[in-house]
Simulated scan of single mutants.
Amino acid sequence: MASPITCHVLNTLSGTPAAGLKATLTLLSKSTSAETNVNFHAVTNDDGRVKEWSSPSSVTLSDIMERFAAGERIPWSIKFDVGRWYEEKGIESFWPEVEVKFYVKKGERHYHVPVLVGPWTYTTYRGS
């Protein structure tokens, strides 16, 4: 089963996918049905995409989502390590990291978070 949360990062400086960019997905809420400070990690693929997230434990993102009630709005964050990523390419970045916070409503279609990032700017939106 595909992850309920995916993302895609494009490097606006070169107009190419941001391959090899570290990302951390974090559950932001404390709920009676789920724990807080749950982190998942990924590195964008050659196309700048994250399709699956890994966790140090055996808990999956789908497992966490199942702990919430239908229709519940769940706050999440994705942090992208853009500062280090640009530095590895010899480019100075204004951003040490870019963080996108968003809600996921349990029971809706999957959520896709596209991000356009450059050394001096970034933008995002809810994708499909």
Rank of each mutant, 00 (worst) to 15 (best):
V9N: 05
S57D: 05
N37V: 15
G15N: 15
V59S: 09
G83T: 03
G48L: 03
T121D: 13
E92P: 11
T121V: 13
T26F: 10
G83K: 00
G107T: 07
V104K: 15
E52D: 09
V113R: 12
Y103T: 09
V50F: 04
W53P: 00
R126W: 07
S31F: 05
R73P: 00
T26R: 12
V43M: 06
S58L: 07
T60V: 04
R49Q: 15
E52G: 03
F68S: 05
V82S: 06
H110C: 10
E87H: 05
T123P: 06
I5G: 06
L21F: 01
D63A: 08
G71E: 06
V104Q: 09
S3L: 01
R73A: 15
V113H: 13
R84E: 11
R67H: 14
E99P: 07
K30L: 14
S33R: 12
S33T: 12
Y86F: 15
G15Y: 15
G20F: 03
E72Y: 02
V38A: 12
S58T: 15
P119C: 09
T6A: 11
C7G: 01
I5N: 01
A18H: 05
E66A: 10
R73H: 08
G20Y: 04
H112V: 15
S31D: 10
E66S: 13
T123N: 04
W85L: 09
I78N: 07
D46P: 00
P75T: 06
R49A: 11
I91K: 12
W95N: 06
E52H: 07
A18V: 03
V50I: 04
I74P: 00
A42P: 00
F68D: 00
N37M: 14
I78E: 08
D47T: 14
R49K: 10
M65Y: 00
W85F: 08
T60I: 01
S93H: 06
D81P: 01
L10W: 15
P114E: 05
R109D: 08
V117K: 03
D47M: 12
I74E: 03
Y111N: 10
W53N: 11
D81T: 02
R109V: 11
K89R: 12
T24P: 01
E87Y: 04
N11R: 12
V82N: 01
G48E: 03
P96F: 03
E97A: 15
V9G: 02
G20Q: 15
